[in-house]
């Protein structure tokens, strides 16, 4: 089985609102997928469905099982960090480690001790005594010490300063990711994780706008900076979005051969952030 997650026509509605609207996708083993969307796009709902925290329509399989029905089984192989603030504040660090060790078959005390030794976290401290950054370090240390097949991170670095954020991702890539594991991650700070992703998925209004390996983006998308009559000619080739920058037009094309665009101006491969804006604006237009 190479598909770790497999979704077919998955939907989830809250009353009139279709938070997730008939999406289908597969996530292969060993990928690091960035799930990117504006607030209220349905990212969190989709993650909740994958984690078995909410029911959904359609067919969703994670590691070959129904995440909602077989949650307990699922949680043996899936880890998640939902938000930075969810560790119980009253607990002491050593109690937390004892608890996870007693309940999670894949947890390694050796690993967690190694990770914690590199931080300033004392085992006797209560979580409420730790700074926000330290709580995230602690949570990440626990998660990275669990031998899981799928790791889901929903805005894991929200509210942390840049140093902690960089360190977080460095640890994740350096100490955790080994090509066997699969990571699913959402964040608003796309630029910071762009380099570590292998795949990207854009989601807006409950629908998937794009799901592609990172290395295909350069072939598939191109950004043309142009002006005047060149811009008019280029527009005939059907850009997916247009914006202006210092009086010039920035056109983004999907699936248009670069040689055809060459005469009209300067070409770039769009950044993920640019691409995201282009896709969302294009889809909403």
């Amino acid at each position: 089985m190479t598909n770790l997650v497999s979704a077919r026509n998955v939907s989830k509605s809250f009353g009139q609102l279709r938070a997730v609207d008939n999406v289908s996708f597969d996530i292969e083993k060993g990928r690091i997928l960035g799930l990117i969307g504006p607030n209220g796009a349905g990212k969190t709902t989709l993650l909740k469905a994958v984690l078995g925290l909410t029911d959904c329509d359609g067919e969703l399989l994670v590691l070959g099982i129904d995440p909602f029905r077989d949650r307990r089984q699922l949680m043996k192989d899936v880890c998640f960090i939902a938000d930075v603030a969810v560790l119980p504040r009253w607990i002491r660090v050593h109690q937390l480690l004892d608890f996870v060790a007693a309940t999670h078959p894949g947890f390694s005390r050796e690993r967690v001790n190694k990770f914690l030794a590199e931080t300033r976290i004392r085992k006797t401290a209560k979580v409420r005594e730790l700074s926000k950054g330290m709580i995230t370090q602690l949570h990440l240390a626990i998660i990275m010490s669990i031998d899981a097949k799928l790791l889901v991170l929903d805005e894991p670095t929200l509210g942390l300063d840049i140093i902690f954020r960089k360190e977080f991702y460095a640890n994740l890539l350096g100490d955790y990711f080994d090509g066997e594991r699969t990571i699913l991650i959402t964040t608003h700070q796309v630029e910071e994780i762009e380099q570590l992703l292998t795949d990207i998925m854009f989601i807006d209004q409950g629908r998937i706008l794009l799901h592609s390996p990172m290395e295909d983006l350069a072939d598939r998308f191109v950004q043309l900076i142009t002006s005047g009559s060149h811009a008019d000619a280029a527009r005939k080739l059907g850009p997916i979005s247009e914006s202006s920058l210092f009086g010039k037009s920035v056109l983004t094309f999907e699936g248009v051969d670069r040689t055809r665009l060459q005469p009209f101006g300067e070409m770039h491969t769009p950044t993920v952030a640019d691409l995201f804006v282009a896709k969302v604006k294009g889809a909403r237009a």
Partner: peptide, 12 residues
């Protein structure tokens, strides 16, 4: 305190 999300991330 939202710690339920942590407890529910464990196989219990």
């Amino acid at each position: 305190d939202k710690s339920i999300l942590f407890w529910r991330s464990l196989p219990i």
